[in-house]
Simulated scan of single mutants.
Amino acid sequence: MPLSEHEQRLLEQIERALVDDDPKFASTVRTGDRRQKARRKLQIGIGLVLVGLIVLVIGALEFWPLGVLGFLVMFGGAVLGILNYKNATGAVQPGAAPGPTGGSTAAGKGPKARRQPLKNRLEERFRRRYDQ
């Protein structure tokens, strides 16, 4: 649904205010998708895994040092892919973002405690309702 003229003007005013207030942040946001670099690294990692696997198989059949080199390339590609997977896909780790209460701890059990999944919390509330 397209924006009305009034909404477009408001958006332009907000953009100008952002550029005036924090030009460095505005240029960072304006550059486009921030996940593009991570996606590219993920693709390179997948490619390296495939190339390393092929070199590993050829090295295992022909010349064993070539197989070791293939393994190292494959391992490097896997590490590159794993390190960039979260940023490339936008996946969020459980407990990484603070909940609606503003904290990431579960029921005040300390900073290392993990929040339970919603299903488990709802089941626990249901059980407590009949226990009381």
Rank of each mutant, 00 (worst) to 15 (best):
G108M: 10
A17C: 08
L61E: 03
F126L: 08
E123C: 02
R128I: 01
F75K: 04
I54W: 09
A96E: 15
R121M: 11
G52C: 03
V29S: 09
V92E: 08
E12M: 01
L48A: 12
L11W: 03
I54K: 02
D20C: 09
Q8N: 06
P2Y: 08
R35N: 13
R16M: 06
G99K: 03
E15H: 06
G81E: 05
R115H: 13
R121Y: 07
R114H: 14
G110W: 06
P117Y: 11
E15F: 01
E15M: 05
P23R: 00
D22G: 01
A38P: 10
Y130V: 10
A96D: 13
L18K: 04
V92S: 07
A97H: 11
V51Q: 07
T89V: 00
F63L: 08
G99Y: 10
R35K: 11
R127E: 13
P117V: 14
T28E: 15
L61D: 03
R128A: 04
L80S: 06
V51G: 09
G99E: 05
P2W: 05
H6I: 06
D21G: 04
E124I: 13
G67H: 03
R114N: 09
R39C: 14
D22L: 01
A60L: 11
L48R: 02
Y130E: 09
P117E: 11
L53K: 03
R40F: 14
V55A: 13
F126C: 02
P65Y: 00
L10E: 14
E12W: 00
F75D: 03
R115A: 14
Q36V: 09
G102P: 06
A38S: 15
G45D: 10
